[in-house]
């Protein structure tokens, strides 16, 4: 079975999905990422899906689960690079990916992570406002 690599770049974990994943490969990625978050203490995860020409409900659910698990492990996930046709199809499929933060590309994803880290960091304001987070349905 193929495996999707998880790269540590600075304090961010970067996953670039370059293959058409079998379901088991997607589940393995979910596990590998959780372990890597704990092992590295990284607070940010970027998942680049620009090479994916479809996202079905299984992959969509996997992305949502990764985002939730990361959050529990004190890491923020941003999904980047979704193709326009994939976005249109996902919405029609009925999947709006609630709770997943997205950015157009890796660079903007890194900026987004840096910003939200800065907002939630040192002189901690007690208000938990996170304008970019989408509330769960």
């Amino acid at each position: 079975m193929e495996r999707v690599p998880v790269l540590k770049i600075g304090d961010i974990l970067l996953v670039s999905i370059q293959i058409d994943m079998e379901d088991q490969v997607a589940l393995q990625l979910q596990e590998d990422l959780a372990e890597k978050i704990v092992a590295t203490g990284c607070h940010g995860v970027i998942i680049d899906i620009s090479a994916l020409d479809i996202v079905d409900s299984f992959v969509g659910r996997t992305l949502a689960t990764i985002a939730s698990v990361s959050r529990v492990l004190d890491a923020e996930t941003v999904v980047v690079g979704m193709r326009p046709a994939v976005a249109i199809t996902l919405v029609e499929l009925g999947l709006s990916l609630p709770g997943i933060r997205t950015a157009l590309n890796v660079e903007l994803g890194i900026e987004m992570l840096a910003r939200s880290r800065a907002e939630s960091a040192p002189d901690e304001d007690e208000d938990e406002d996170d304008p970019a987070a989408v509330p769960a349905p």
Partner: peptide
């Protein structure tokens, strides 16, 4: 069209699964 390809492949993926 690209969007229709994407829709058809996505539907096929769901139903094949």
């Amino acid at each position: 069209s690209l969007v229709d390809q994407t829709k058809l492949v996505t539907a096929a993926s769901e139903l094949a699964r």
